[in-house]
Design a protein around this nucleic acid. Sequence first.
DNA 1: CCATTCATGTGAAATTCTCACAGGCTCGGA
DNA 2: TCCGAGCCTGTGAGAATTTCACATGAATGG
Lengths: 267, 267
Amino acid sequence: MTVQSRRERIHEIATNEGEVSFDDLAAEFGVSLMTVRRDVEYLERKGVMRKVLGGAIAIKGTSVEPSFATRSADHSRSKELIAQATVELLEARETVLIDSGSTALAVARQIRGKDLKLTVLTPSLLVALELVDEPDTTVIVTGGVVRPGELSLIGGQPEAVFSQYNCDTYVMGVAGLDADRGATDYHLLEGSVKKAAIECSERVICVADSEKMGKVRLVTVTALKDISIIVTDSPVDDPTVQAAQAQGVQVVTVGSDVAPNPPMEGK
Amino acid sequence: MTVQSRRERIHEIATNEGEVSFDDLAAEFGVSLMTVRRDVEYLERKGVMRKVLGGAIAIKGTSVEPSFATRSADHSRSKELIAQATVELLEARETVLIDSGSTALAVARQIRGKDLKLTVLTPSLLVALELVDEPDTTVIVTGGVVRPGELSLIGGQPEAVFSQYNCDTYVMGVAGLDADRGATDYHLLEGSVKKAAIECSERVICVADSEKMGKVRLVTVTALKDISIIVTDSPVDDPTVQAAQAQGVQVVTVGSDVAPNPPMEGK
DNA sequence: CCATTCATGTGAAATTCTCACAGGCTCGGA
DNA sequence: TCCGAGCCTGTGAGAATTTCACATGAATGG
């Protein structure tokens, strides 16, 4: 039995029984009191349980709502794969700037439950909502006018906010990515926010599904060479990908050929 | 202070704060540890609280539950009435600052569909979400750190944002309203945001259900006399209401002036 | 192959909880 | 007025729980 599965089981028991004692759990799993205690502590930080004297109880109502952010957006498989790969590039305790847009939102979703203890800055209300309840995670939103469709924030003083926090990584979404024209976007003010984000970040990870490759949109955000890493599901022989690599950009490809993902340890 | 009221108050504090420590409670009420311990034991038997190590938590309190409970829960009739009356005080095309908190959120809900063409500033993500899709309405959120339970934004530069927009009306929620101590709140930074909002607004409308009357919380936000209008469901002979009127504050009361004392169970 | 990290166990110190007892208070009835 | 019942309250000691620091072994990653 792995650590992970034991913790899941503890949560399950607590949910069913309502309450569990540390003694019982220790006996049940054949581990020490200290171990189950630490397990419960972990689950408590995840927000699903709560310690009481001598044991723990399950927090009700947690598992029902996947947050309504999750409802609206699309769940494309490729975005999910891109998001998974992107999260693996993050380190614990980083300060991460997460963009608006569906792909960046997918990244936020993957961050959930990973216990990365991040500080997250975002101009997206959906990203913020997705991570609000994450334990040990601080969520900071930039101020500004809410753009109805996207629920992204434009205007305000993004530069001021971003620079205040020494951002390590910027997870950037784009509307188009082209060999010559670089990263581009539809909306003028969105573009300004992205530019400010790039300015303030050590590392720029661009998440872009194959849909975006070779497309040029209204506003130029940045040149390819200013991107640190591109995560995409495009094939490695895509001309835009090739161009990016030629300019020294690291490219991570996911999907089709590479997918040896054991998401849960099957023991 | 009677035993009964102390216990009610303990429950109330726990509901608002999410968690309370026995030490704090004992100090707060000037009684021994054993006494608060027994109070909590009583409340635990009633099923509304739960003891944890060193303190207690509210069982179905709003703040322990993940955020969106606010959406379904807390649709109290009195808050709705207060909100309706408040919206009637607003004029079309105003710039309105709407607070965080459940009562202010109720106001945002009432604004929907009214075609008021407002510009709304808010430090509450829930208020923002409520009004995003409203036509001819601009929603601006202040930046800052997201406070998990409330989904309110603290820190950031609220003053800068508020003053930038020439706010006409501030719809303020409070945790307590008292004749001597004025409007008070639980949270320090939350209080700072409110102070900034008052500074930047022409008119301050305070929405406060009868629950808040006569209560004093941790942080003083402002004196009664600096409030323009109070909208409440308290009876007109409530001492705090009287005091406010004596200080020149306009008071709007809603709801049936009947049913001032719904019989409590036992005792 | 070694340095790091993580999961785990152990025991003692510190904190918290429980329990029983006693004083003080109010409220009726004698 | 006096008395007893019922409740609320405070105190202290013993019991239980929790926390903390440290040590071990396994897994991980250069």
